[in-house]
Design a protein around this nucleic acid. Structure first.
Lengths: 230, 230
DNA sequence: GGAATAGTGTCTATTAGACAGTATCCA
DNA sequence: TGGATACTGTCTAATAGACACTATTCC
């Protein structure tokens, strides 16, 4: 069935179609970047960028659809997604009624190049162009959610390489929280959470090497502590 | 269009239709109760109960639809709803593919009788019958969300009458957290949050009267404190 | 005065947050 | 040895949590 015909029927049915959109973040050059794909849907959305996403197929859950669309548009595998929010204002898609189940995905900074393809681009969230649909809004909500999550969980694990140093970890928190953190308090607090453990290796640089760590668990863990330290 | 015909077309389109379901909680007789409506959808769901809900119309958001369906099925007005999660497993509705944007609503214990009508019933969440669709699962998720929310926000405001005593407030926390709380610590902590304020009245009973309080704000406030006190 | 529930204060242990100097590597 | 960044510990103030008695009303 042609898309045109499809939309006509859907419109007649006066129903809301559900689709998914995925906000993929990675930290590049010390700023949060989001992965965008080209969108060209005349007459309203021409030569624009937007979030990767699309329809949900007959035999998949929205979660599956999010993973699938991400894999197709960003050429990646094994990225886990978390449901963010469902956006449903009637005019969010000017072409026809559609509802977006938005997902949040995180990519370690040593992996972001993998998911690049000819069309997709990584853009700093501080320098977003005008995006298709309500995708700018979705990204804003995603940033807030991410900021909220890091203070009571180990979500940052998905933004860091498998092995990382404590200064690198702290830097991620500083970027997301947009404020400097005290090095001693940060280390003290983070080590008491037992979320990370030493590996028997150091990161060699042009100065004193730093101890490498890894996250104890690959699953999302909830921690009681709140990172309010200055 | 007849429902049968509608479902046939939808099935041919192989698309996912979005609907809403609303979990309404109230505390009745010291236990969490949920509001259920009768559901009769042969052949899979006959003479059962389930959450109030239904389709999203052309010109309304999911939030609007949730409020509307709640008003229709439960005969009430002015209840605010919060998006809970979107459920989308392909077989969650055995009749046809449908996705549920679930909402959470709370009703003060002095108001729950208002939303009763000939068909709806209030059932303790400890004694739920088998429900239609995946509604049992949705309710479980809703309870967890509610439990999580009360420790860092003033959500309980929607479970209490406009004026209430501190022992009543504490009771709500004890029911939701399923453990006793120390009276002195509870009062001390809650009063330092400034979430509530005294009113110039007391609740008269057959023993010593209790000071009445009211929530300072009708909006959802986030508090840093965590109610972990024993 | 007895029953029933409201209301109150202190002490201790832990945690949060401020703060500055030493250690280790490389060039 | 100088540059650069990793790493470490203490003090203070605030908070969490344990704990028991007095106050007020009604009957």
């Amino acid at each position: 069935m042609k898309e045109e015909e499809f939309r006509k029927i859907v419109k007649e049915l006066r129903i809301a179609i559900a689709a998914v959109d995925v906000v993929v973040f990675s930290i590049i050059n010390n700023t949060i970047h989001v992965f965008l794909t080209p969108i060209h849907r005349p007459p309203h959305y021409m030569n624009m960028f937007g979030l990767p996403g699309g329809v949900i197929l007959e035999n998949e859950s929205a979660d599956d659809a999010a993973v699938r669309h991400l894999a197709e548009k960003a050429n990646t595998k094994g990225v886990s997604v978390d449901q963010l929010y469902t956006f449903s204002y009637p005019d969010r898609d000017k072409r026809s009624r559609s509802i977006s189940i938005a997902y949040l995905a995180l990519l370690p900074s040593d992996k972001y190049k993998n998911i690049q393809n000819d069309n997709g681009v990584w853009v700093s969230v501080d320098k977003l162009p005008t995006l298709a649909y309500d995708h700018s809004h979705i990204i804003k909500v995603a940033i807030e959610r991410l900021r909220g999550k890091i203070v009571y969980s180990n979500v940052v694990k998905d933004l860091l390489p498998a092995q990382f140093t404590l200064p690198e970890l702290q830097r991620v928190y500083e970027i997301l929280l947009e404020r400097p953190l005290d090095k001693r308090n940060f280390r003290k607090k983070f080590l008491t959470t037992k979320l990370i453990k030493k590996v028997s290796d150091v990161k060699k640089t042009s100065h004193r090497p730093a101890q490498l760590y890894t996250f104890s668990s690959k699953k999302l863990e909830i921690i009681p502590e709140v990172w309010a330290a200055l």
